[in-house]
Design a protein around this nucleic acid. Structure first.
Length: 448
RNA sequence: GGCGCUAUCGUCUAGGGGACUAGGACGGGGCCCUCUCAAGGCCCAAACACGGGUUCGAAUCCCGUUAGCGCUACCA
């Protein structure tokens, strides 16, 4: 994989935008094999290639001021006509051109599009044959008046220099392709293969790009998305391995990839499915791989320090394993993890309202739960389950009647992993402490 | 407007003349499991844009219409 930064438009290419590209690719785990090529660094070769076309009469200087061009275009549009560039400088007498050059009149270099009657066509890897009549292609600018090349020219010059044999890009470039093919021919070089991939659209059905709505790929990192899920999801937008394969690793996708599976239709980016995909990857991946990602998030959230997590590593891994099942993004895990780290927990008003509705009854249940738990012969899931189910039976109530109020006492929430796992993960002291606190809280409520 | 590309459930897609009462996945609905929430399992609703051809036979091939999108710059 080669990475080239196409920065010929100085107004739009900034250090920041370039860095976003690097960071996005790095995050996705897509590494390039050779040093980054900056298109701007090849300016001299671009100019030399333009010169070659100029000398061969395949391009010409156009001294029309840009303002005049803009005016004509606007006027044509106002009249409801199709604007077409008139070739009026192509046959400028040599002496006149010489004069203007000496006067340093500004000019652009335009490519002389060949034979009006001709057709420029190619066999696209995904679309099969695409053809453009030459008459529909205007003599396009290849060198700006500031002597920098236009994208269409720089790309061809660079692709030739870099020995590129397959040009794969978004299908918004289809209409650039005939121009580029003409340039390859004018430069006397072999054509690469072209493959035009469908675009990705936003929920509104419009092209998704840095100019429209979309965030940079890297932004998803901060939303708790896993790069492998992102990669998997994106790959499936416009490509299918056939059959019903969906959740795949990069290695599997690379193995399965074939151009036949490429779609021609633009795909709409569905964040819901991305989240599902992320959940799938999160559940499937080795715990050891998920751990550092979660650790970073937990530390960032201020729940614990990395050292603290390392100290009770086994416990921590088990907790992550317990929580990842019910999480779709990494942040879901962090949200659920709070009751296992914080000293104090907040009671979710809804949980209180629902599970501690009857204060006196809750108080009584929690008190006997505390007594039973305090007296438990050992602190493991099987023992605790036996003890608590026994207690419920003695009271003649179902397990849920016992577990739900307990869950609120332990986590402050209505949702958590299985209650015995919670008990074990919190440990005897913390669990009993939480129960004491809940009892205290409820007593005050009852008195007041 | 011109040129181009595209067209299967709401979304991502399988399908490449008969295997199609059109399959899977996300999302939605229901049920099961169950201490909650997830996960998991089962079930349901949901699509071949339209019109012409070609053919014994079209989701599949051809043409047109329509719609959507893209390009139409001294942007990339």
């Amino acid at each position: 994989m080669l990475l080239r930064i196409e920065d010929t438009d100085k107004a739009r290419s900034t250090d920041e935008s370039t860095r976003a590209i690097f960071e996005g690719l790095e995050w996705l785990g897509l590494a390039w094999d050779e040093p980054v090529v900056y298109q701007g660094a090849n300016l001299e070769r671009h100019r030399a290639d333009v010169k070659q076309l100029l000398d061969a009469g395949l391009a010409y200087r156009d001294f029309t001021p840009q303002a005049v061009l803009d005016e004509r275009r606007a006027a044509a549009q106002a009249r409801g006509e199709t604007y077409k560039y008139k070739r009026e400088w192509a046959e400028l007498p040599l002496h006149e051109e010489q004069e203007r050059l000496e006067r340093e009149d500004p000019y652009v270099v335009r490519f002389r599009v060949p034979e009006e009657t001709g057709v420029t066509e190619w066999d696209d890897l995904v679309h099969e044959r695409i053809a453009f009549p030459n008459k529909d292609v205007d003599d396009f600018v290849i060198l700006r008046s500031d002597r920098t090349p236009i994208y269409n020219f720089a790309v061809v010059s660079d692709d030739i220099a870099m020995g590129i044999t397959l040009v794969m890009r978004g299908d918004d470039h289809i209409s650039n392709t005939p121009k580029q093919i003409m340039l390859y021919r004018a430069l006397g070089k072999e054509l690469p293969r072209f493959a035009h991939l469908p675009m990705i659209h936003g929920l509104d059905g419009k092209k998704l790009s840095k100019r429209h709505g979309a965030t940079a790929v890297g932004d998803y990192q901060h939303e708790g998305l896993l790069p492998q899920a992102m990669l998997n999801f994106l790959a499936l937008l416009g490509w299918s391995p056939g059959g019903d394969r969906e959740v795949m690793s990069l290695a599997e996708m690379t193995e399965l990839f074939a151009p036949e599976g490429l779609q021609r239709k633009a795909a709409i980016f569905d964040p819901k499915k991305l989240e599902w995909m992320n959940g799938q990857h999160m559940s499937m991946m080795p715990l050891a791989d998920l751990e550092p990602v979660v650790t970073r998030a937990i530390v960032a959230a201020g729940l614990a320090t990395a050292d603290e997590l390392a100290e009770r590593h086994d416990w921590y891994l088990q907790l992550v394993d317990l929580l990842r099942v019910r999480a779709r993004v990494v942040d879901d895990i962090v949200r659920q993890a709070a009751p296992y780290f914080a000293d104090e927990i907040a009671y979710d008003p809804e949980a209180v309202a629902k599970q501690w509705k009857d204060r006196a009854a809750s108080l009584s249940i929690l008190s006997s739960t505390r007594d039973t738990l305090s007296a438990a012969p050992s602190w493991d899931a099987a023992t605790l389950e036996a003890e608590l189910r026994g207690l419920a039976e003695r009271h003649g109530i179902g397990g849920g009647k016992l577990f739900q109020p307990l869950r609120v006492a332990l986590t402050g929430l209505t949702v958590s992993p299985g209650i015995f796992d919670v008990l074990v993960m919190q440990g005897r002291d913390r669990a009993i402490g939480r129960l004491e606190r809940a009892i205290e809280y409820l007593s005050q409520q009852t008195d007041g």
